[in-house]
């Protein structure tokens, strides 16, 4: 064949998929097909996964059905706007928040804190600090020790001003547990385990602990006028 005109490629968009069947594949670094790096065994979704899921759900149904046979859902008297129960409680999963309302003005306890919690949950996977899995103490331990001290001190002052002992105590306890892993001598057993935990682990665990404590207090230890009571007095 003699030289022919080099074929002209025009980059254009045509919606007729039969007339323009030109396919150009760009294999870029970011979207390149994943190279197999593992040799794990695979199993088929049908039936292996589906049967296991069905079994798990059946066990759940059985447990809930048994519970429902022996434990009745509460039903109080007809709703009466003129008769306020004391205390009036939200559903259990909001009692941590209601407990916060006892310490902070509604705008802080009812709006600011829940909004911040939801935002914080959403952005977790978009921050490098949460993606890193390196132990908190492994790098620049002195600098980090100082940062930790400042954060815990500031938080403590805030909590003391508002007299939120139920958050202050776990905050200081968890900071103390963190410190157990700070020393390079912490190289075996539990202390090594602590040492290998990244910052995201500590923040989440602090949040989880505080949330559980507040919810338990709000649920079991609050009576008339939101005063502290024993569960059996409520």
């Amino acid at each position: 064949m003699t030289e022919t005109e080099p074929k002209e490629f025009v980059a254009s968009i045509d919606s007729d998929s039969r007339r323009t069947p030109v396919r150009v594949a760009f294999v870029t670094r970011r979207t390149s097909p994943q190279v197999r790096t593992h040799d794990d065994p695979y199993v088929m979704t049908f039936p292996e996964v589906l049967f296991r899921a069905a079994t798990a759900v059946e066990a759940l149904l059985l447990a809930l059905a048994l519970l429902s046979l022996f434990w009745d859902a509460p039903l109080e008297g007809l709703a009466d706007p003129m008769q306020t129960p004391n205390p009036a409680k939200a559903p259990w999963y909001f009692l941590g928040l209601q407990e916060l309302l006892h310490y902070f003005p509604p705008i802080v306890g009812g709006v600011l804190i829940p909004t911040l919690v939801v935002l914080a949950l959403i952005v977790i996977p978009y921050f490098g600090i949460n993606i890193e899995t390196e132990g908190f103490w492994l790098k620049e331990p002195k600098k980090r020790m100082r940062a930790l001290a400042i954060v815990v001190a500031a938080l403590s002052v805030f909590l003391i001003v508002f007299e939120v002992w139920s958050v202050l105590v776990p905050t200081i306890l968890i900071a103390g547990i963190m410190l157990l892993g700070a020393s390079p001598a912490a190289n075996s057993g539990f202390r090594k385990w602590l040492r290998m935990k990244p910052l995201s682990f500590w923040i989440m665990s602090w949040f989880l602990t505080v949330a559980i404590i507040l919810t338990v207090i709000g649920t079991f230890f609050r009576g008339a006028g939101w005063a502290l009571v024993w569960p059996w007095e409520a």
Binding site: L75, G77, A79, T84, A88
Partner: peptide
Amino acid sequence: WDQLAFWAITVGSNILAAVP
């Protein structure tokens, strides 16, 4: 629509009212 329901929702919706 019992007392439990009514007042739990009242407490919750009062929190909403605190939004600036």
